[in-house]
Write a protein that binds this DNA or RNA. Structure first.
Lengths: 216, 216
DNA sequence: AATACCTTTGACCATCTGGTTAAACTATTC
DNA sequence: GAATAGTTTAACCAGATGGTCAAAGGTATT
């Protein structure tokens, strides 16, 4: 049967891809070993090269897939039409839940960007940030609304600072998890609880910033 | 002369250490090559093993030195006796300037923590965080003061969130520099300017948070 | 100047690692 | 069931890499 053959192929290729993602995400390009990927996929090392010609090709396939997953997730989070304050809360909740499900991704991406900056330049070259940022925060900026009884202010030149801050405070704890977790636990916190609390904390941090009076 | 001999030794060892720090910080333990370290130090590969028996030993020496440098810097920043708001500003200014001078350290530390969590556990085991956090923020918590005309609030259980936030928003941009820099520049910003502005932004973010009314 | 000690190196080694290849195995087609 | 095409593997290879070692070079001690 043709079906069976194709599904078998797909199966092996997927097993390889899955294994590669796990190993690369855990050890990075340099630390990963083709043999380990093969073992985890339950196949011979030769088969890796049959489906993906080289380590670099396999890695690129994994990286591109992961990068696309992240960008898609980001765009998706902001599609929802909600009042601004709810949108912020929704962003942090979704974003943190995503990171909880993929805790290894931040450091994986950051390490690879450092190892090979060119790859990221190509990836980000297609995106129109000017437009994206204004889409995301524009409704607030163009037309300051009263939200939850508070007036929110945002100047255009603050956008990069605010956006990178939103990403920083969610991504960093996961990138630094192995540092943070033992520290928190020695103080009686669990990382799990810390992360859950962070959703509300981050939301309030941003809203408080936007609702404070400035330079007045 | 004994002096000359000793100073020569010190010289070579220091050259090796310096080269090792550069290479390890740039490529991590896995990506670094002993030959490259030797080349950068202008000596033969054998000499590396003469002074530091193995790659692992050399790496550990570098890592411990860097880790200690960071912890020392942190403690030092908070020694200054200043009004709380000024202390926050002083923290961000000093911390960001330190990172500007050592932009590779964040990702170096984070990667190594991920590669070898045990090492960090040992390093952090000695530190009493409960005490440190209360030393840092305690004066505010014990005795809310009016600062710059504003009343600042902080609940003990908020401390971990706030401290990790302060670190996140300063460290993350440097860890993600190769991602952020091209994005910012495509929007007309320079990373340099972004980082300078971040000092004030971060300060205001924290102060706004502390001065907002909660749960009222 | 002979001795002893420290430093430095080139040559070398064992192992690891990404990658190749020929052959075996399986399924499909005729 | 023979031929054809696709899949999988064991054995192998070349180059890289961390590490060793004996010998050379230099410096101080006697």
């Amino acid at each position: 049967m043709v079906n069976k053959k194709l599904s078998k192929d797909k199966d092996t290729e997927e097993k390889i891809f899955e294994a590669a993602r796990e190993v690369f995400a855990g050890k990075g390009m340099d630390g990963a070993r083709m043999q380990e990927i093969a073992d985890r996929a339950g196949i011979s090392k030769s088969l890796l090269h049959y489906y993906y010609r080289s380590k670099e090709k396999l890695f690129s396939a994994v990286f591109d897939d992961v990068a696309e997953l992240i960008f898609r997730k980001f765009a998706q989070i902001f599609e929802r039409d909600l009042p601004f304050e709810k949108k912020v809360e929704h962003f942090f909740t979704e974003h943190i839940d995503f990171l909880k499900a993929n805790p290894g991704l931040p450091l994986f991406i950051l390490s690879e960007i450092n190892r090979n900056p060119e790859r990221m330049k190509k990836l980000t070259a297609r995106i129109d940030y000017q437009k994206m940022w204004y889409t995301v925060w524009g409704d607030l900026n163009r037309d300051p609304k009263q939200t939850g009884g508070r007036i929110l202010h945002l100047e255009p030149q603050e956008i990069p600072q605010l956006v990178t801050t939103a990403i920083s405070i969610t991504v960093f704890p996961f990138a630094a998890r192995n540092l943070l977790e033992p520290v928190l636990e020695r103080s009686g916190y669990s990382f799990e609880r810390y992360i859950e609390e962070r959703k509300k904390f981050a939301t309030r941090l941003v809203i408080d910033y936007l609702s404070s009076q400035k330079d007045a």
